[in-house]
Amino acid sequence: MRNPQLNRNGGLQHLLTIDGLPPEILTAILDTAAPFTEVAEREVKKLPLLRGKSVFNLFFESSTRTRTTFEIAAKRLSADVINLNISTSSTSKGETLLDTVDNLSAMQADMFVVRHASSGAPFLIAQHLAAMGLEHIHVINAGDGRHAHPTQGLLDMYTIRHYKQSFANLVVAIVGDVLHSRVARSQIHALIALGVPEVRVIGPKTLIPTDVDKLGVRVFHDMRAGLRDVDVVMMLRLQNERMQGALLPSPQEFFKYYGLTADKLECARPDAIVMHPGPMNRGVEIDSAVADGPHAVILPQVTFGIAVRMAVMSMLAGG
């Protein structure tokens, strides 16, 4: 069976997950994103690539940063952007996901950017579009359940490559709530596909999925040991809204053992960079002194995210 994310020519048809994408495609996305960063410095911050195309932002789960950066990316490519706030629309009146998709397809949609609390929802939409013969419509996963958040993973890779030039000799640590994190899954798949020799995950036993080592990562429950000599620290947000049951004693205790402080960061390499996908819980997973400190590249991540999303959208539309 053909990879559902690729078209007949091996180009990108949908972006649903990083898992299973050839490394050449990942590298092509990062390479394509680079010239888009320059557009932000122009008087007219617009390129004509998606002129006349309609991009529908389908957010079944709330998000500010991701939805906004997708919106900016699409608008800088001259697309028409339609934001659907689903919690106040038809789904709450009982319409199914695929009926919503059919209706929007009938409105000549060219691209769906989908965020959904259920893992696999964007895949279901892509499959449905193929079954309906609507292969000109592309789907971008903007985060589905605990499964994947591929554009976040890609913008993180772009950020790492920007500061470290190459992936070849890096030690990268992902810290915190890996269990609930679709971001962590996308990061791990991307780091390994791009050839990072050592990927570590750090967190309490209750927040690290069992079998995560089968993805090729090293697991640490002691943060200082895990941060020893790392080049890149990727913090995760503690996902309070996804917690069920007593996985954690308290946020304060989490901060004591797994919060990134200047003191713990000293275990990493002196030129280590600190990343966070946002929104940050200051004083829970990261100390303000680190979040605003010289190692943090958290705001550049947001800026690079626009260029990476522009690259993905143009590769889909031009494929």
């Binding site: 680079a34 010239p35 320059e38």
Partner: peptide, 10 residues
């Protein structure tokens, strides 16, 4: 024909 694979920055 889509995007050229190796675009340079203007």
């Amino acid at each position: 024909s889509g995007l050229h694979p190796q675009i340079k920055s203007s």
